[in-house]
Computed example of a mutant assay.
Amino acid sequence: MELYCENLYNRTNEKLLDISMTAEGKIDLCRKSFTAVQESLYKLKEYVNEHGFKDKSSEIIFFKSVQPKFLGELIYFAEVFRIESSCPLKPPKQKKGCYRKEMEKISAFYERHQELYWYHFSGKTDLDDKLFLRNGEIDFSFPDIYFLDADPEFSCAGSYRVGQFIAFKKVLEYLQISLDTLEGKKSNKTGPVWTGPKVWLIELIYALKAAGVFNKGKVDIKDIANITGPMFQKDLGEYYRAFQEIRLRKKNRTVFLDHLKTALTEYMDAADGM
């Protein structure tokens, strides 16, 4: 299951990248991206319904770390679509007010759910069987759910909320960039932008750590991540958690490194005229 979910997520990111390069404006981008992620969620749902989970541990991992990534993307595009559709023709001053109001709403959301937020992102596990198992003891209402049905075999209390945490963080970044643009502030970011899956970059930084190529091996993974993320304009987020997912891969735990080797070999062969 881990490999299927990872491959599906990577294929989804590739679709989103293609859409971002061809979409005609923000509304079109959000609409097409939402549809692409929704299709991937349906595929994920079909896979889960067909194969199930081998034990409670694998079910918890799925609803705590896997499904929320897809939900986060889905909710993000739905929220940006809603925001941009609500004030498409407003003058800059009113648009800035609209963006600030949305940021206040998100801040209020985090305040309401701060205990769950800190539970999840601090790495605690003592409530996992209540939050990340189907029919768990803790239940939330989902009046704003974005996919077509809340199938009890494909949903649980914590997964959707974690998806919101992931999504709203991205929405805040989007709103801040939009505000800066309206106020004439220029980004000081330069250089290449990482457009591959985030998990690939995380796999790379852990490989560099393991190889001991920085400071004769005397450097923490946090130091490498803090430099690498901004360098390639990529928020690495919970890279510790992502590394645990990489370790759990069944067939191949070095997908990106193997891809790099193949790509470089083919590049050199092409340069040699082979």
Rank of each mutant, 00 (worst) to 15 (best):
I83C: 04
Y146R: 14
F63T: 07
C87V: 08
S40P: 06
V66A: 06
I145F: 15
K189A: 14
D220Q: 15
M21R: 13
D220E: 08
K15F: 09
D258M: 07
T262D: 09
S57W: 08
K96C: 13
S86G: 14
T265I: 09
Y160C: 05
D55A: 03
E2Y: 14
L74D: 00
F63A: 03
D28Y: 06
F154W: 07
K218N: 15
K45W: 08
E203M: 12
L236E: 00
I61H: 07
K218Y: 07
L236Q: 05
K32L: 15
K261V: 02
A150P: 05
E46I: 11
V255H: 06
F34L: 10
K198T: 15
R247A: 10
S65V: 00
Q38V: 00
D129G: 01
F232Y: 15
K105Y: 03
K69F: 02
K209R: 14
H113P: 04
R11F: 04
I106E: 01
D128E: 03
D180P: 03
K26Q: 14
K185F: 11
K15V: 02
V193R: 14
H120S: 01
C87Q: 11
R11E: 15
S159F: 00
L71D: 08
F63P: 02
C87E: 08
D272S: 06
E111M: 14
E73T: 00
T181C: 07
L74H: 04
K185N: 12
L182C: 10
M103S: 12
G136S: 08
F77K: 03
D235E: 14
I177S: 12
S178M: 06
A242W: 11
Q244L: 11
W118R: 15
E59N: 04
K96A: 14
E111Y: 11
V37W: 09
T22D: 06
W194P: 12
C156F: 04
T265D: 14
P230E: 04
Q233D: 13
T265E: 12
S86F: 10
L71S: 08
S20Q: 07
I205C: 04
D151L: 04
T254Q: 11
K124I: 07
E173I: 12
Q164T: 01
K216Y: 08
P88A: 12
Y47S: 00
T228L: 06
L179W: 00
N252Q: 10
M21E: 15
L71W: 14
I60E: 04
V66G: 03
L182K: 09
L44Y: 05
F62R: 07
L131M: 14
E6Q: 08
G229P: 09
E173M: 13
K95W: 12
D126E: 13
L182W: 13
G72K: 00
E14G: 05
T125D: 13
F63N: 11
K186I: 14
K186W: 00
